[in-house]
Structure formats: C-alpha cells, structure tokens
C-alpha cells in the first residue's frame, strides 16, 4: 500500500504577477497598467490604489486598449496591457499584429485567465488559440510561466526587455516548481527532471502535471525527462534537439488546441533537426464541453495518469 503525499499548496499566479508589477512600478514611473474593465480579474486594484493616474481603464473596448498601449509606448511608457486572454488576443488580434508586432512597440500584452481557466463559462471564454495566433507574428516573444517563481521572473524580464512581449498567465492554482529567485531566460527551457526513455515538454498549468506523470512513469520503470518550455516563441531548439537525440521520443502537453501551439512549435523543431516519434496532447481541435479547467484537462487526456498512458503508448513507437 502506498501512502499518498499531502496535496501540494496551490497558488494563483495572478498574485505573483501583480506583486511583481507593483514592485517594478515602484521604481519605474514609466510602467503603466492598461485594462478593459478588468481591474478585478486582472487583480489591478492594488496598482490602482497606489497610482490611480497610471492605471488606464479604457472600458470594454479591447481594440482601443491595444492601440492605446502602442501609443503609450510611442510616448516612452512601458504599458502592461491586461485583459482576459480570449478577448485580448481574439478581439484585438489585428491591433496586436499592426500596432504592436509590426510597429515593434514596447507593449507587454498580458493575457490573464488564459487557456481554459474560465472552464464552465465555455469556449467563448477559453483562450486556447493564443499561442498559435501570437506565435505567427514576428517580434513578439510568447511566454507561459508555470508557477509563481517563473511568473515573477518572466514579468521582471518583460519589463526590462525593449520590445513587445506576450505573457500568457493563468488563474488556475499551481504548485511551486522552480526555485525561489529563478531567473527567466528567453527561449531557454528548464529541465525539471532528467530522463532517458522519452521527454515530456509542457508549460503553464501543465508543467506540474507533467512532473506528476513522470513520477508515475518512474514507478513503472520508465525514465522520463521533463522540460518546462515557458517560451513558445522562440522555441528552444537546442533543448528539443537534445531531447530527440538523448531520449528518442517527445510528448508535448499544453492547455491549448493541438493546432499551432507548443506541440506544433516543438514538432517544427523536431522535423527540421532530428525526427523522432511524437505525441501532441492538448485540446483536440474541438470546442470543449462544459467543465472546470482541471476537469477539461483530465478529459483531454492530460491528468497525470493520462499523460503517463500517452507516454507508454508513445514508447511503443520508438525505433
């Protein structure tokens, strides 16, 4: 009989996001928050109370919101444009393309409650296309932190990076994975666990599930490497190539459609470097049924047991 470990404490990474943003804003007057009536859901109440003039709430008008961000950047400001990721990236995609990416403005796009965080609210509120949409645009790094430490590190990096950034943040509770004081490096995966039989690549709310799956696999004698791949663009081709060479099979897990997201980015690197068997886990190209974020991830085969099962199936395809 096995004694299960006590459930890990879970954290809403929006708190790490706004805590970091406020700390940065304390020492840099140019940092501005812009939002679409989402002061509450973006957790910007504290920022507003400290610097009322530096919180620009444009109301429910996302196209204007992103344009305003681009104009603020032109005027020397560092705008963090915050909105539910589904509305930020869906409604304002052309503004993101022209005003932010193409004009190469110093706008930090913060997609809050991304993925299926709004679970039961349904597919209109799911943001499972944003990796694909934003990844297709030049100039915009796409970053999905996995926990508190990585959120703090990625927000700090974004504030100091000159140019656009898309930060994909969640509200779904996640345990700590990376050490306190973690430093974010763009386009650099973190190996959370080494292994030799296959590699599981994940990011955002999937990274801790991938770790749990690797533990289950280890109990069955399978050695899985786990890469936390926060940066979807530019993808860490070196880490992908090493995974292909050293483990011979790659399983990707993402809170996103399998069309055009993390799995696709990894697959692009794999086919151009060293083709190995792959399996892409994610939302399988459908509008999700009713359910919470965690229910839907399980439903789409991304419970730890589901990921482990896919890993075992993938292993059979290894040469």
């Amino acid at each position: 009989m096995t004694i299960s470990a006590p459930p890990a404490q879970l954290f809403d990474c929006r708190d790490a996001f706004v805590g970091t943003l406020e700390a940065l804003a304390q020492t840099n007057n140019d940092i501005i928050a812009v939002c679409n009536d989402s002061v509450g859901s973006s957790k910007l109440g504290g920022f507003r109370d400290k610097w009322p003039g530096r919180l620009i709430n444009v109301g429910i008008a996302e196209q204007n919101m992103v344009g305003v961000g681009a104009g603020l950047a032109n005027g020397g400001k560092i705008p963090f444009v915050c909105a539910a990721s589904c509305f930020l990236t869906g409604r304002a995609l052309e503004q993101i393309k022209a005003d932010v990416a193409y004009t190469n403005t110093n706008v930090k796009l913060c997609g809050i409650s991304s993925g299926m965080a709004y679970g039961e609210l349904g597919p209109t509120h799911h943001s499972i296309e944003d990796f694909a949409w934003i990844r297709a645009l030049p100039n915009v790094p796409v970053i999905a932190p996995a926990d508190r430490a990585e959120t703090i590190a990625a927000v700090t990096w974004s504030a100091h990076h000159e140019g656009p950034v898309f930060l994909r943040l969640s509200r779904v509770g996640v345990p700590d994975l990376l050490p306190e004081g973690h430093v974010f490096e763009l386009g650099k995966a973190n190996m959370l666990r080494d292994g030799t039989d296959l590699t599981i690549i994940a990011n955002g709310v999937l990274s801790h599930r991938a770790m749990a799956a690797a533990q289950m696999l280890a109990e069955r004698g399978i050695s899985a490497r786990v890469l936390n791949m926060a940066t979807v663009r530019p993808i860490d081709r070196d880490a992908v190539l090493a995974a292909a060479n050293e483990t011979g099979a790659i399983l990707t897990c993402e809170e996103h459609t399998v069309y055009g997201g993390l799995g696709s980015a990894v697959a692009e690197a794999v086919v151009e470097t060293r083709p190995v068997p792959m399996k892409l886990l994610g939302v399988p190209g459908i509008f999700a049924p009713t359910g919470s974020a965690n229910f839907l991830l399980d439903e789409f085969g991304m419970s730890p047991a589901g990921i482990a099962e896919s890993a075992r199936e993938l292993m059979k395809k290894k040469a």
Binding site: V68, G71, K77, D99, T103
Partner: peptide, 30 residues
C-alpha cells in the same frame, strides 16, 4: 515606422490610428 523616419505608426488596416493617438496623448498628459 521601423523603416521610415518621421512615421509614427504602421498603419494600413483602417481604424488603428486614433486608438494609438489616444495612447500618445495620454503619455503626454502623464
């Protein structure tokens, strides 16, 4: 803008300039 000095925004799709202008005007006010 990234190629031609004096250009302030990469326009083309219509309805983009005024939102950007609002952001610029707010930057000046700040």
């Amino acid at each position: 803008r990234t190629k031609v000095p004096g250009v302030e925004a990469n326009t083309g799709p219509l309805g983009h300039g005024l939102p950007i202008g609002v952001g610029m005007a707010m930057a000046a006010k700040l």
